[in-house]
């Protein structure tokens, strides 16, 4: 069972308290009606499936109930870092993902 740091509670809590909520940084258009079929397809159906770093949404379901974003390595399963919903995609990741975890 993984430990996940909730950026609102500011502590690591066991995975059981959380729910994955799909890929992060998929912006909903401010003008949904005006979206082309192709754009809607990209927005709703197409998801990345990388080997390595993935940006995901998680919810601290059985804690503060907040949605937040996380960077996870799909190879090691490790969470590299977490940050609050609405914050931009981090431009730099911690050098050592273990350090990111321990903090």
């Amino acid at each position: 069972m993984l430990l996940i740091r909730c950026p609102y509670c500011e502590e690591e809590r066991p995975e059981l308290e959380f729910r994955n909520a799909g890929e992060a940084h998929v912006a909903r258009s401010a003008n949904m009606v005006g979206e082309s079929d192709d754009d809607f397809e990209k927005f709703f159906f197409i998801r990345s499936n990388p080997k390595g770093i993935i940006y995901e949404r998680w919810r601290h379901m059985h804690g503060c109930a907040r949605f937040f974003n996380a960077v996870r390595d799909t190879v090691t399963d490790k969470f590299v870092m977490t940050y609050r919903a609405g914050e931009p995609k981090p431009s730099k990741l911690p050098k050592n993902s273990n350090e990111g975890l321990a903090k």
Partner: peptide, 13 residues
Amino acid sequence: MNHMEDYLQTEFP
């Protein structure tokens, strides 16, 4: 409830 919270917290904060 989850669906509503999701939109409220992330799309329409």
